[in-house]
Computed example of a mutant assay.
Amino acid sequence: MLKFDRQGLLPAVIQDDATGEVLMVAFMNEEALSLTRETGYTHFFSRSRNTIWRKGEQSGNVQEVRDIFVNCEETSLLIKVVQHGDAACHTGYRSCYFRRLLPDDGYEFVAERVFDPDIVYGSMRAKSQGGEAFPIAIDYLSTNEQQKLESELRQLYGVYQYLRDNDMSEESNTSRLLQERSHGYLVARLADELEELAEVQSGEHVHTDRADDTILEGSQVGYWLMLLAATDNLRYDDFMPHA
């Protein structure tokens, strides 16, 4: 009999049935495992969102189950699948294991990204004044509040990337800041807002009340963080937390 942990979860190693490549590791509870067996496609339990999700429900990169194996202690699963679509990893790689750990604790990338998650996880595209399309991820398939927030943050960062790559300084101060690419200035502004956010919590910095001031200063922290990330050409997934 399978032995789920205290949280009711089992780790599941997902392996390509044809090549033997390890694609990912995720967690299943009893319901996710039951859905996986009933439908023939992998379902997992998200610990951060506290909900069941079907692999590929947004990207289309579903996993068709071929076999399910149990380890000797009945505490984990090995699931062999046919990986449909380009990749198993939400960051755009074929496998989640696309980096080799080096002796100095650094990473060596050993695979190429096969899709851009900012495009795959958002189906709408905005256009510049000249008609050139650029991707911003604002589409989502669930009313789950966390997924909605994720989509909106991706959309916002996509706008900042666009303002970085297209000079609209006359219409947008944000575009001007991104065109200047002043790393030191952006770091200083981010540090200032972080300090003010901390002072709101300690009661040293007050506009109205703690709740409203936290929202105000927190939004400023987010703004300067995104501008700094865009200036450094980071992808959204490089600096934002994900499940």
Rank of each mutant, 00 (worst) to 15 (best):
M1C: 14
M1P: 15
K3W: 01
K3G: 00
D5M: 05
D5A: 05
D5E: 07
L9P: 01
V13N: 05
I14N: 03
D17C: 11
A18T: 13
T19E: 01
E31K: 14
S34K: 06
G40C: 04
T42C: 06
T42H: 00
S46R: 01
W53F: 05
R54D: 02
R54I: 13
K55L: 04
G56P: 04
Q58H: 06
S59N: 01
G60M: 02
V65P: 01
D67Q: 15
I68D: 03
F69W: 13
V70P: 00
V70T: 02
L78S: 12
I79V: 13
I79Y: 07
V81C: 07
H84P: 12
A87G: 12
S95E: 06
S95D: 04
C96M: 10
F98C: 02
R100M: 07
L102Y: 07
P103V: 14
P103H: 03
D104T: 11
E108M: 12
E108C: 05
F109V: 09
E112C: 04
F115S: 05
D116F: 11
P117G: 03
S128M: 14
S128W: 10
Y140G: 10
L141Y: 13
R154A: 02
Y157I: 04
D165I: 03
M168I: 06
E171I: 02
T174D: 03
T174G: 04
L177F: 07
R181A: 14
R181K: 15
S182P: 05
S182V: 09
G184T: 02
Y185V: 06
L186H: 11
V187T: 12
V187N: 10
A188F: 13
L190S: 03
L190N: 04
L190C: 03
E195Y: 11
L197I: 02
E199S: 05
Q201W: 05
G203D: 04
H205N: 00
H205L: 00
D209N: 03
L216H: 14
Q220R: 08
V221E: 08
Y223V: 09
L225P: 12
L227D: 15
L228E: 10
A229P: 07
A230E: 09
T231K: 09
D232W: 10
R235T: 10
Y236N: 12
Y236F: 15
F239S: 14
